[in-house]
């Protein structure tokens, strides 16, 4: 029994999530009513979408099983299915006429290591917190904190540099959006900060 490496494990996870999510969507969707006096009800499309999603997940899982079985000797890289060499020179004219190998996934990023995950986590966390704190702390403070965090922890800038750039961009962007574009950016709802005009 061979242990799964990280990319394949993630593929399995997403495929499983698709099946689970699709089934949930289909069941909940069906609850909205599949039929109505004239034609279909509100639940029809969610049910169709959910079923298709679950079906796609199952197909994917089957592919993963198949890929695992064929490539037992070789190390599984997770993209055995995709890594076909473009062997079109050797094909007949008929094949190349009919062939329609569409690849829409150009050089997807390499799989992240532990630090890679940490960087993705820090960025996402910073955006999440910033969005949640926006009504409380106001735009200027939130943007400064978000940029500062990202510049310091992810871009590995020196602390003073990160702080300087963060404050500068927060103020500059507020100037552009409020003064030139005339849109309103949220201000702090804490009285102390609001009093400072933030």
């Amino acid at each position: 029994m061979q242990t799964l490496n990280a990319p394949v494990a993630l593929e399995w996870t997403v495929a499983a999530a698709a099946v689970a999510g699709g089934l949930t969507m289909a069941v909940v969707g069906a609850g909205y009513g599949l039929t109505n006096t004239s034609g279909v009800g509100a639940g029809f499309f969610p049910t169709v979408a959910g079923t298709l999603m679950a079906l796609a997940g199952v197909l994917w899982a089957l592919q993963l099983v198949a890929a695992r079985r064929t490539s037992v000797p070789a190390p599984v890289t997770g993209d055995t299915v995709e890594s076909l060499p473009p062997h079109h020179e050797s094909e007949s004219a008929l094949v190349s006429l009919l062939d329609d190998d569409n690849s829409d996934e150009p050089d997807s990023p390499d799989f992240p290591d532990r630090q890679g995950w940490a960087r993705v986590g820090i960025i996402s966390g910073a955006i999440l917190l910033a969005a949640l704190l926006l009504p409380l702390l106001g735009y200027t403070v939130v943007m400064t904190l978000m940029l500062g965090t990202i510049l310091f922890f992810v871009s590995k800038r020196k602390l003073w540099m990160a702080a300087l750039v963060a404050v500068g961009s927060a103020l500059a962007s507020r100037l552009v959006f409020e003064v030139w574009l005339g849109t309103a950016l949220p201000t702090a709802s804490i009285d102390f900060l609001a009093g400072l005009g933030l």
Binding site: V179, W180, G182, A194, G195, L196, G197
Partner: peptide, 18 residues
């Protein structure tokens, strides 16, 4: 307009909504 707006912004900044 831009000038007026920036002046207004500065004023709100100082006056605040205390």
């Amino acid at each position: 307009t831009a000038l007026a707006a920036s002046v207004a912004l500065a004023l709100t900044g100082c006056g605040g909504q205390a």
